[in-house]
């Protein structure tokens, strides 16, 4: 029995009368790749912001890496990594400077930084580009660098908010290889995506509809449950029932 890294119970967040996240309960285990699916406006981003310590829940329980989201959100921030759908590196800094900056704000020492930067650049095969501005690199590369930077400080959990939006299929495949690698090293991956082939790569998948979790299982379990050929069908069956639009 592996222990759970993310744990929520009846987690709810309201904005006025609007219930963005409605009593969601789930567990994510250590080293798991957890797919967090849902149509636009289903409440994914709000749930994710709560788990990242950016937003306080209205009610319910939640803990991330063993820290409570109400009281210990500063602790949570030290133990998570985050990468958003919007590009999240500085375009007018070089690759090396970006790595050093993000390492720096997570409190890595100068020596650690130097070593990690060297290893990372080597591993990404960016020796030629290390001192080029990030803005001049293709999107796929940027996203790979952004992911590497997000797990630079060895977080317990890394949150990926639509990390592969707009990236070509080959690079997406490479990106997922990196995700597997990270999970293999014990980093829990919490990922949102709109690509259903990516959903198949996840260990378990939850699908949010109108603020609630409508289904949660392994991809094959979900397909069996909804008698569907692919995750695409599963998703469409559930999402069609949604009342909230964008």
């Amino acid at each position: 029995m592996t222990k759970s890294v993310i744990h929520t119970e009846g987690l709810t967040r309201k904005f006025g009368d609007f219930v963005a996240v409605n009593a969601i309960t789930f567990d994510v285990k250590e080293g798991e790749i957890f797919g967090f699916l849902g149509a636009n406006g289903a409440g994914k981003t709000t749930a994710m912001r709560i788990l990242c310590g950016l937003l306080e829940p209205t009610s319910g329980k939640a803990s991330v890496a063993g820290y409570d989201v109400y009281r210990q959100n500063e602790e949570i921030k030290k133990h998570i990594g985050y990468m958003s759908q919007k590009f999240s590196l500085y375009e007018n800094l070089t690759v090396r400077e970006n790595i050093q900056f993000f390492g720096g704000i997570y409190g890595l020492t100068r020596k650690e930084l130097r070593e990690k930067t060297a290893v990372l650049i080597e591993r990404l095969g960016l020796n030629q580009e290390a001192d080029k501005l990030v803005g001049s690199l293709p999107l796929g590369w940027k996203q790979k660098i952004a992911f590497s930077v997000a797990i630079l400080h060895r977080p317990k959990v890394v949150f990926l908010d639509e990390p592969t939006g707009g990236v070509d299929p080959i690079t997406r495949r490479q990106f997922w290889d990196m995700i597997y690698e990270a999970a293999h090293e014990g980093i829990t991956v919490f990922v949102t995506t709109h690509y259903m082939d990516e959903a198949e790569y996840c260990d378990r998948v939850s699908i949010m509809v109108d603020g609630s979790i409508a289904a949660l299982d392994t991809p094959s379990g979900l397909k069996k449950q909804f008698q569907a050929e692919s995750m695409d069908e599963v998703f469409l069956q559930l999402a069609r029932g949604a009342k909230r639009g964008e």
Binding site: C52, L54, E74, K78, Y82, S88, L89, F102, I105
Partner: peptide, 13 residues
Amino acid sequence: ETGTMEILLVSPM
């Protein structure tokens, strides 16, 4: 605007 603020806010800073 560029979204980097979000990254900074989830950092321990």
